[in-house]
Design a protein around this nucleic acid. Structure first.
Lengths: 337, 337
DNA sequence: TAAATTTCCGGAATCGTTTCCGGAAAATAA
DNA sequence: TTATTTTCCGGAAACGATTCCGGAAATTTA
């Protein structure tokens, strides 16, 4: 129950606490035999240094924090695995929290991370996050912060993203090349940067091919399966059914797919579908879903490496935005029969 | 950059640190105006108490830890959401780590949690974990620990599970009632308690209905989609194809489904499938997968409440195993045509 | 008015470490 | 043998808070 402290060991061996500390930390300034003796009896007594005290003194923890909006969808868990890969090797512990897409939770999570004196933070902003002042201060203070996926251009720090514009453009063009005319876009929540980028890609692909877009072509949804379901149901009720849908992510595409199938509509015969952010799901649903693959683990690894560099360099750092490459995985859901 | 400490505030106001501390903590022993003044200038100076110092003194953190084997499959993330629901309301922060199914990682994670002085821990054991001595010590020391899903009967502490035996029995019986004769079981890794329980349910359902089982009926797989794929491929190669499969979980069932479809076999026409631990996936795959639903969030909430009780009571506690109810969701994959 | 009580605050110990400083003993150099 | 350097260790300050103890000033009671 009672924790064994350095003093207990010192008392037992009749020596000073500084000697004990030296045995655990220094390489010199202590006789080899003394060191051995101390280490042995310490182990025997079950002593290990209290990291809380150490942190108070050293002001760093060998821990890094990760705060993500959710992990119901497989995207964030996969990124986290990439992050852990890098940090565990380096002897860092990775603390994870999720904001549940709430700004307040996110802020509290970040503060909790600070309280744990994490040496750095990897963050993906929640849907609600508009005010990034707190993070601006953090950065201004020199606190190592890396953003990914849900980033903000008001924050001048390391970022890891993929070229959402480009891949949305390609995905849309793919549908156009397949011969689909009436293509809708299930767009993400308006606040997110990638929503805007993917939407622009969608629009510009239409421009390039001289296809008209009206105000009903782009439909703002959320990011979950249920959001895709809801919007698809509305479309069917209004009897406003497109040839094809380019969805902002896989879950919304899959939500649409569910409702289409329930209503007896064939995919891709009646409506073709393309998702984004390839997940396990894309290959499992029937028909398999065409999707833009994001290199999830690589995103994690990259963010981790950027953070690690910043932590270890301690010097002036130049905010860097790494744009990773995606890939369009063409599957049955978007093929012209 | 430099943190503002209680001393800075004391110096500024020309008073002692204890007075500052009182302003932040006490309700009495300080004049109202002094208190106001201190709180105001403290805020103005951007001071907030250093939690690390507080923890060192108080020996508790208002944080709890969660260590899970993985979160690629949706099961654990959902449980965690339930856990957070309970703790966030109570003002606790929830720290999450994943062991990646490795015993060493798990142990390091648990130790890292201890180093953060979490007030309690919710744990689900990794595949590799055989030696639970460390956790036994933890429990013996009175450290609040709650297990769920992957539990060990060598640990006398709170546990949250569902009745795996019963629901495996029902699931198997369901297949028997549908008229399937040659029913195989994709069993989980041998070390896990629930593997054994689900296997026994499978066996006893056969006994009850006087159906024979031979040594090839039960096939040990892993827990991931790829494990299901691998074993199914073997069966097809050996031309040893059952009427139906009861899989230890959804991912293995879905893995089998993928391979069956790829080989042109109809589900449930040629092979019927039943999974376990209902996930999002079950409804999304084609055909929809019959599965035993576990109340994931409720598992989380229950574990959280048990832990909270133990933390707050501080008294003698009686290890309690809560068995939650499941449900068999019958879908197309197991229907006799 | 004197004595007793209350109010409010400062000093110092404490939590468990690390690390700087200095000093005795041992080893080396003169 | 004496002077200098090295080796090894103890003491104490520091990290940033909380809290017990005690004491001066203000207030109440006798």
């Amino acid at each position: 129950m009672k924790h064994i402290t350095i003093k207990d060991v010192a008392k037992r061996l009749n020596c000073s606490v500084s000697t004990i500390s030296r045995a655990f930390n220094d390489k010199y300034d202590i006789r080899k035999e003394t060191r051995e003796l101390i280490l042995n009896t310490a182990r025997e007594m079950g002593y290990s240094p209290n990291p809380m005290a150490k942190r108070l003194l050293k002001q760093c923890s060998n821990q890094i924090g990760v705060v993500v909006p959710e992990f119901i969808n497989p995207f964030f868990p996969e990124v986290i695995i990439g992050i852990q890969e890098v940090f565990l090797k380096k002897g860092y512990q990775v603390l994870i929290m999720q904001s549940n897409e709430s700004y307040n939770n996110e802020l509290e999570n970040v503060k909790a991370m600070e309280n744990n004196m994490v040496d750095g933070l990897i963050l993906s902003l929640s849907l609600e996050t508009k005010n990034v002042e707190y993070y601006q201060n953090l950065i201004a203070q020199g606190f190592p912060l890396v953003l990914f996926n849900r980033v903000s251009n008001q924050l001048e720090t390391h970022k890891v993203v993929i070229d959402d514009y480009k891949w949305a453009f390609f995905a849309t063009e793919h549908l156009i090349y397949q011969g689909y005319k009436k293509i809708f876009h299930f767009s993400g929540p308006a606040g997110l940067t990638f929503t805007q980028n993917r939407k622009n890609g969608f629009i510009d692909a239409h421009r390039k091919h001289k296809l008209a877009i009206d105000q009903h072509t782009i439909i703002e949804t959320g990011l979950m399966i249920s959001d895709g379901e809801r919007e698809m149901e509305k479309l069917i009720q209004n009897n406003n059914i497109p040839d094809a849908i380019f969805a902002v992510n896989d879950p919304t595409a899959i939500g649409a797919m569910k409702i289409l199938k329930k209503n007896g509509l064939k995919i891709p015969g009646d409506v073709a579908l393309v998702g984004f952010t390839e997940s396990q799901l894309a290959q499992l649903v029937d028909p398999p879903l065409t999707s833009v693959a994001q290199p999830t683990k690589e995103i994690g690894r990259t963010a981790a490496r950027l953070l690690l560099d910043q932590i270890e360099s301690k010097g002036i750092f130049v905010p860097q935005t790494v744009v990773l490459n995606g890939r369009l995985n063409v599957r049955e859901s978007s093929m012209k029969l």
